[in-house]
């Protein structure tokens, strides 16, 4: 790397941004692989219901299908905001 390279460092390392975005996305997509088609719909509707009572973020509701031996467990987690500001 040259000593004057700092002059051209505007777009520094978009590759690492790409890598980080892909890691998260692909991990998420792999976890959904083979899962029933209704999961995204279920996630959306749960979010709508929860939002009637609590002002949560779009990403607050996670629905995952977890394999536990021969059983499949539907794992639903809802992250509430720090100050649980009830809107109702």
């Amino acid at each position: 790397m040259g000593i004057f390279d700092f002059l051209s460092q505007r777009n520094k390392n978009t590759a690492s941004t790409a890598r980080d975005r892909l890691r998260i996305l692909i991990q998420q997509e792999r976890s959904m692989r083979g899962a029933p088609d209704y999961l995204p719909m279920l996630q959306r509707e749960l979010l709508e219901v929860i939002r009637k009572y609590v002002n949560v973020d779009v990403e607050a509701v996670k629905v995952d299908l977890i394999k536990d031996g021969d059983n499949e467990v539907l794992d639903i987690s809802v992250a509430l905001p720090e100050k649980a500001a009830a809107s109702g």
Partner: peptide, 17 residues
């Protein structure tokens, strides 16, 4: 382009996939 940091490297792609 990999060295400049604007393209995913071989190791990146191998690691992600």
């Amino acid at each position: 382009r990999v060295e400049k940091g604007d393209m995913l490297s071989i190791a990146d792609v191998e690691d992600i996939l």
